[in-house]
Write a protein that binds this DNA or RNA. Structure first.
Lengths: 361, 361
DNA sequence: CAGAGTCATGTATGCGCTTACAGAATGCGC
DNA sequence: GCGCATTCTGTAAGCGCATACATGACTCTG
């Protein structure tokens, strides 16, 4: 790995100036064909690759978009089973990559490190033309500051009214409507009335919106529901989901008729916990999730859930960024709400076939 | 998005020199605490984010690793069904991202564009400290030239002996052993003897290795097998898999007893085609794939296949790159072969439970 | 209180490229 | 063969940061 060749080396070897070398790459038509060939030949001989850093520095743009996502890795997931490890952040990545490619951008991705958040921001924000952030990955204050200088779109986190982030674009999904429809289904179509919502201890606007949807459906049907989630899991993982299910079963009055979990991972954990206790899903207890991760179709019974359009969210994010980058700077912040799909599978008593209903937005 | 603030702005605002500002970020301990605070405060006020480009230029390293992968998007896949769209490149991405994060790197990803290959290389190679390439994503000649100046690891493509690429690290999976074991299983455990291999028209070392494994198993069992794949699909997609299955059924002598497909997508296509013809899998015709994509477990009958350890491949790739970046330059090229897992599911006559056997390496 | 030793900070240069701008070639009509 | 419009190419000035080196402010010792 000797020192990499630069424009100077190529220029010298082909007997032109560095400006001409640069032109060959940036604007080929502005160089006479014969000269161009000489330059390209020299570049080939030397193994020349233009430095993205220098190029970016000089031209003030990188041609790269970024994505910061939380480290959702669920340590409970069987490491051997790659499929199950695919979470929905992967789908956002794929969606963004596709859209970015269409627009001629590459994609830089980084999960939040526990190490100082500066590292995340430095790694991503400093190297891209614009980026998307999954909610609560980066401290609000930092985002606020960064988003003043370059386009940022917030994913899956509802706009937090009144705070300083209300000037950045953001994309969310119909958490409320989806959860309400799913809950309505449990109540009206399956006749369940003792429902328990499994939320999370961490403050999450998504989870809160889902809980409100749950409450709305309960109220609409005249079902008694406490104003607080029945359980708040410490983390939204399988282990915590299992623990939550156990806790609910051990409470006075026996297990509820349905566990409405705020995400799929917890729901899968709950499924396992109930099975261990000898309870049958959905006959003894129905279980539902939220997200639509692939694992939900692999478990038995298959998991009834609300599917988020993650691929599309990634694509929309890129489209927004690109629009910002090429558009008028002062444009008003955009807020998208994407519809979700209620997927009724076996764990609520439907199935084995999957039935779906689009909801929201 | 007015002009982004720079070290100069921060320096001025906090009454220090730009060198001190730089030190605050690069080497905080070398600056007096009081000064540091002043600088950080100014940075915060201004919304300062260090330019990755300038940093990279000056320090000659980016802290970013890259991945180039082919555009595997299968247009046949139902766009609504995000799960099914997850291919194994996604798993490599995830594996690389995880490992990269552990080592303090971010990950830049780009699928090959049809547009001039220069774009791919310029986008990725020029912006990273090292990168992985999925086989045949980048023209050999270009790779050859680039890999002289920075670490490159080739994924899933067997070393091509005798060509100029034999000096770069590479990671492959046990294509031969996996396909041989799977074929042996069909012949010996299910007693099938009329097998047809569905290969691909494009030249692919992976597919070739798989075919050789197939042949080896046939020979070992005294089964008559032609020396050429029974069909070479134009592309390795569902549509082409279906077409291949139809072609085989229409040949004289009726359908074979087993379709051994070179990848999962074609196998899924074949499944559909056979169903349309009123043939039952596995009773009339057994079908097998290769890769282990999530979709394989979602189709009915579930797909017997050879699972590649993609997550691990991504992780190993990053480990290799990091080692190269920190190690002695002249070290010999490394070649890893990762074991695969034969997953026996319903489409070969096993199942409904999945049975697995590790093979190779 | 001078001189040596530390630590904190400033000065100056270059990383490899893009891009005005200026200058050299070339072509055209007359 | 001259003048002028067109190409084409070279010159030079940064882009924002890291860092070697120089400088200045102190502390400590004798």
């Amino acid at each position: 790995m000797s020192t990499a060749p630069t424009v100077y080396d190529v220029a010298e070897r082909s007997g032109v100036s560095i400006a001409t070398v640069s032109r060959v790459y940036r604007n080929p038509d502005s160089v006479r064909a014969q000269t161009r060939e000489r330059v390209l030949a020299a570049a080939r001989d030397l193994g020349y690759v233009p430095s993205g850093n220098a190029r970016g520095l000089a031209s003030r743009s990188t041609g790269v978009l970024g994505l910061c996502f939380p480290d959702y890795a669920d340590p409970d997931t069987d490491a051997e089973d790659d499929d199950a490890a695919m979470l929905y952040s992967d789908q956002i990545i794929r969606g963004m990559e596709r859209a970015a490619r269409r627009h001629g951008y590459a994609l830089l991705i980084a999960a939040s490190l526990k190490g100082g958040p500066e590292s995340l921001v430095a790694k991503v924000a400093g190297r891209v033309d614009g980026f998307a952030v999954m909610a609560r990955t980066v401290p609000t204050e930092e985002l606020e500051s960064i988003s003043r200088r370059r386009p940022v779109v917030m994913l899956a986190g509802p706009r937090e009214d009144g705070d300083h982030l209300d000037h950045l674009d953001h994309i969310e999904v119909a958490n409320f409507d989806g959860q309400r429809e799913l809950t309505r289904h449990l109540i009206e179509d399956h006749g369940l009335r003792r429902l328990a919502f499994v939320g999370s201890a961490e403050e999450s606007p998504d989870v809160e919106a889902r809980f409100q949807g749950f409450l709305a459906a309960c109220r609409a049907a005249g079902v008694d529901a406490r104003e607080e989630p029945a359980v708040r899991a410490a983390m939204m993982t399988q282990a915590e989901g299992a623990r939550a299910a156990d806790a609910l079963c051990d409470r006075g009055g026996g297990p509820p008729r349905a566990l409405v979990c705020a995400n799929d991972q917890m729901a899968v954990g709950a499924l396992h916990a109930l099975e261990r206790r000898g309870l049958t899903v959905p006959d003894d207890v129905a279980v539902t999730g939220f997200d639509g991760i692939p694992l939900g179709r692999l478990v038995r019974p298959t998991l009834t859930t609300v599917r988020q359009p993650m691929l599309r969210m990634g694509e929309e994010a890129v489209d927004l960024l690109v629009r910002r980058l090429s558009g008028t700077p002062g444009a008003d912040p955009v807020s998208l709400m994407l519809p979700v799909t209620v997927a009724r599978r076996a764990s609520c008593g439907c199935g084995p076939e999957e039935l779906t209903t689009a909801v929201g937005a």
